[in-house]
């Protein structure tokens, strides 16, 4: 067993820990691992180039930027915030948990590309969350705003990941089925997807409780403020 290629992993860990620019760190790690595994330089270059262009779909979000940028210039985020502030009964927790539910159900049906960080979180969910949080605590500082946006992004991730694994027609389930089929164990996709359901439910509950507890924290911080105003 050749353990030397593991040094590529060490390059990643050290590079991220020292907060170097991630792009050269990743490329260095690939070169280190490949060279220590005994790949020749031309083969390594070809492997790097081929795998890079094979995953071009990961830059799809770039195409949303012109439309989103134009709408933001025309006041999309401001409007989302104002609308959110006017909606009675729409609390931060209800907004985020509602989004989580829709996102997870859509992912369960295989509709992962429908929502996402560029398509829905930046233009809609993040500003709405900020407005909903301002209804609770009008004196949000920059740290709060960063945390709120991060929670909105995290909610999107949790909904997507743990819904996706229940969907039978692509991705995870087919990978699992394919692996077993190669090794002589025949399973139907449904039999695998079914066992992703408990975690899908647990993930929904855990993320919802955490969102609700965050809202409670904001409310607790707001109470002394309100008492001051009242008194």
């Amino acid at each position: 067993m050749n353990y030397w290629p593991l040094l590529g992993v060490a390059v990643i860990v050290i590079g991220f820990a020292l907060r170097f620019n991630a792009v050269p760190v990743v490329v260095c790690a690939a070169l280190v691992s490949g060279l220590l595994a005994g790949l020749h330089v031309p083969d390594l270059l070809a492997l790097l180039g081929k795998s890079f262009v094979s995953s071009r779909m990961l830059l799809m979000f770039v195409l949303t930027l012109p439309a989103i940028g134009l709408l933001e210039r025309a006041g999309l985020r401001e409007h989302a915030q104002q609308w959110m502030a006017r909606l009675r009964g729409m609390t931060l927790a209800r907004l985020l948990i509602g989004y989580l539910l829709v996102r997870e159900v859509l992912a369960t049906l295989g509709l992962m590309g429908v929502a996402g960080h560029a398509q829905t979180v930046r233009p809609l969910l993040a500003p709405m969350s900020e407005a909903a949080a301002e209804k609770i605590l009008p004196t949000l500082n920059d740290d709060d705003r960063d945390e709120l946006r991060a929670i909105a992004a995290a909610t999107d991730n949790v909904g997507r990941f743990f819904g996706e694994d229940v969907f039978i027609a692509l991705g995870a389930v087919l990978l699992i089925q394919g692996f077993y089929a190669q090794h002589g164990i025949e399973l139907t996709p449904l039999a695998i997807a079914l066992w992703a359901l408990p975690t899908a439910i647990v993930a929904f509950v855990i993320q919802s409780v955490r969102i609700w507890r965050y809202q409670r924290r904001l409310q607790r911080r707001a109470t002394p403020l309100r008492n001051e105003q009242g008194g």
């Binding site: 067993m1 290629p5 590529g8 790690a29 595994a37 390594l44 790097l48």
Partner: peptide
């Protein structure tokens, strides 16, 4: 440059696989 990272990391994963990083970790 953050936009580039997903593609680079996918390529890194491929290089790791081809270099036997996975097999080494499983052995450990």
């Amino acid at each position: 440059w953050a936009a580039l990272l997903p593609l680079l990391l996918a390529a890194l994963g491929e290089v790791f696989t081809q270099s036997g990083v996975g097999a080494a970790i499983a052995a450990l």
